[in-house]
């Protein structure tokens, strides 16, 4: 194709998105659109998969059967969300194996929040309430993104996600209304998860390199800073309601702008964790790669069984 023709196709493509038309897997698309989507969707899928690990830590130690079934269901949902997103990503012409390879080799990123440890039961509450809360804010706009398979996967994800946040907040309510030790445990979890949750909404607009293009493709509808403000404004009253304190001395209601002012985020910490120097980066990757490698014989056995069954069927047909 000549440069002129490609320019022409690109213009038509951008016009389709501007008209709110969806792009489907077999449609022509600019290489950059394909690459950006593979990057974002796979990162999203990897986050769901790695996100099971910090919570999996507490399944066997949940304080009651009610909490245990809820946590199990939540972790199972995350596996499901990872699978919806991987298969949506595969429609762009990358194989599941390549996607796993990118995660396991460290080439692809996942949300850096999952590199923090879950040291008490209250962390299950804080993760559901804050981490899933921030994730929902990030994800809801994606239900209208321009790439059809991604948008459809996100509709399903968002539908399932709201129970995650509610079960987390319920854990926090219970602890905050419990013994002084339980309340302290809840406060401690909030102290540790608050700032990483704010960072989850991404670098500041000034630092965010992909924002402009992503806005055009509706991969993003609001800037990181706007999303962060929304998250803070809706979460602070929820903390107040259960008598917990947001660990930010500069947090203050700003009557004039109708939202909260908040303190500086430690972006050095964010970039350190992104670059692999968080408290659990190595542990998470070891757990993930280990599970994949230890499962290899199972995958091979399943394939061998399927082939044998197929051969038997063909023989009988003769």
């Amino acid at each position: 194709m000549s440069e002129e023709q490609i320019k022409n196709l690109e213009a038509q493509f951008e016009a389709r998105i501007a008209r709110d038309e969806k792009i489907e897997a077999k449609d022509w698309m600019p290489e950059k659109y394909r690459k950006t989507h593979i990057r974002q969707m796979s990162q999203h899928a990897h986050s769901e998969i790695v996100g099971m690990l910090p919570e999996g830590n507490w399944i066997t130690r949940a304080p009651s059967l009610r909490r245990k079934v809820a946590l199990l269901a939540k972790v199972q949902d995350e596996a499901g969300h990872g699978l919806y997103l991987y298969s949506a990503c595969e429609t762009l012409g990358i194989s599941r194996d390549e996607l796993y390879e990118q995660l396991h080799s460290g080439k692809a990123k996942y949300s850096s929040i999952f590199n923090y440890p879950t040291v008490t039961w209250a962390d299950m509450g804080a993760i559901g309430w804050l981490v899933d809360g921030a994730a929902i804010i990030n994800q809801v706009p994606l239900c209208n993104t321009s790439y059809g398979p991604y948008a459809r996967a996100m509709v399903r994800v968002c539908k399932e996600e709201s129970f995650h946040q509610r079960q987390g907040y319920e854990i926090m309510i219970k602890l905050a209304n419990g013994t002084p030790e339980q309340k302290e445990m809840a406060q401690d979890a909030l102290n540790r998860w608050w700032w990483p949750s704010l960072m989850m909404l991404g670098p500041t607009d000034a630092e965010s390199i992909h924002t402009e293009q992503s806005m055009k493709w509706k991969l993003k509808r609001k800037s990181n800073d706007d999303l962060r403000q929304q998250f803070i404004d809706q979460t602070v009253p929820q903390a107040d309601l259960i008598g917990l304190t947001i660990p930010d001395p500069d947090l203050k209601w700003n009557e004039e702008k109708g939202s909260y002012d908040f303190g500086d985020i430690d972006w050095d910490e964010f970039w350190q964790v992104v670059k692999g120097h968080g408290p659990c980066n190595k542990e998470r990757m070891n757990a993930r790669v280990g599970a994949w490698e230890r499962g290899e014989w199972v995958r091979d056995a399943a394939m061998a069984h399927a082939e044998k069954q197929q051969q038997r069927k063909e023989k009988q047909a003769v």
Partner: peptide, 22 residues
């Protein structure tokens, strides 16, 4: 949606778990 499975039986079981949990 789609999923990976070794054979049709496994695909059905996985589909049950991945797409019809509710």
């Amino acid at each position: 949606g789609s999923l990976h499975a070794a054979d049709a039986d496994m695909a059905l079981e996985n589909a049950r778990d991945v797409y019809t949990r509710r």
